[in-house]
Write a protein that binds this DNA or RNA. Structure first.
Lengths: 169, 169
DNA sequence: CCCCGATCGTTTCCATGTAAATTTTCTGGC
DNA sequence: GCCAGAAAATTTACATGGAAACGATCGGGG
């Protein structure tokens, strides 16, 4: 992992030149850190974290539309279309045209898709839990709370897994 | 006039399906949020935030090598090579071969490169300052502190505002 | 010296994600 | 019914960034 400097001409203190005062820079760096760790985990690298997120949201919101999904995950419809094509080819997602508005498509997971989420999401959770860096559990909780507020999303909207309208149709 | 949904079948509470419990997901979302805002700012969208970061670090560390730079910014050497080629074409960066180790290259900014940083970095800072979301200044400072600790980098040695009294609770 | 392994930078190819334009459908005014 | 405008999804072209393989150089052992 860490190798000693082989021909170092002296300790050189490298500086970020003030970049670390900017939240945007720190978030980019943190996200890169997460990406590196996630893509090194073969359990979740295959579909990728972005794809797992899409599947998880579809499962939590059966019948969701493309636009809502893109809006929640801050990705563009164009890219979502590509992802969903892949998912359909995999047999994980079903697209049903909405008869009351034929522009829209309602997304649901197939049986196989649910099985995939059951396999992938725990692996992703485990990966995330393993990544507690140097933060204490309390600091990690604080970080999550601040990020939720930053993003203007409920801090733990789904912790209680509200089974609203589950399987009612 | 209200832009009310015209044919909504009812208020649908969309859920993230437990994703918001994961720090990695929140960081991805936050970074996407930042990216969207930054790329909408014509003052900094032209070279892009990643490029500005590279220039800022070269300026803060004249003579830095490719590998050190990639290591600090958590990007790969392969991509850094592309960026530096662009910078050289722009006349912003100078590469000097190190005579004591001819594999390595020492990077410095040209006069024009320094001018570019002088123009771009303040714009980036302003963009960042403008993005205080729903967080209070105190919460934003706390977020930065936690991210620095998360990344294991010194927490803004040059922070202008005083240290907070929050402590580590 | 020459070979061999390690390190540094580059090149090539590929995955990820966006922007702009297009298609289809819904809504409202005539 | 028909046309104009808005909204939802798709397609096409492109930018951003990584993975793997490569060439060049250093350093140590025969």
């Amino acid at each position: 992992m860490d190798a000693a400097p082989r021909h170092d001409t002296g300790i050189r203190r490298r500086s970020y030149g003030g970049l670390t005062e900017m939240s945007g820079f720190l978030l980019s760096l943190a996200q890169a850190h997460v990406y590196a760790a996630d893509s090194a985990n073969p359990q979740i690298a295959d579909p990728g974290t972005a794809q797992i997120s899409v599947l998880a949201v579809i499962r939590a919101n059966p019948g969701i539309r493309h636009g809502e999904l893109a809006d929640m995950l801050l990705i563009k419809l164009a890219y979502l279309t590509k992802l969903l094509k892949g998912f359909e080819a995999q047999g994980w997602v079903h697209r049903r045209s909405n008869p009351s508005d034929r522009r829209t498509v309602e997304l649901t997971l197939t049986r196989e898709g649910e099985a995939a989420v059951d396999r992938l999401l725990p692996a992703l959770r485990a990966q995330d839990a393993r990544r507690q860096s140097g933060l204490t559990p309390r600091e990690m909780a604080q970080l999550k709370r601040l990020l939720c507020k930053y993003l203007d999303i409920p801090a733990s909207a789904t912790t209680a897994s509200g089974d609203d309208a589950a399987g009612s149709g």
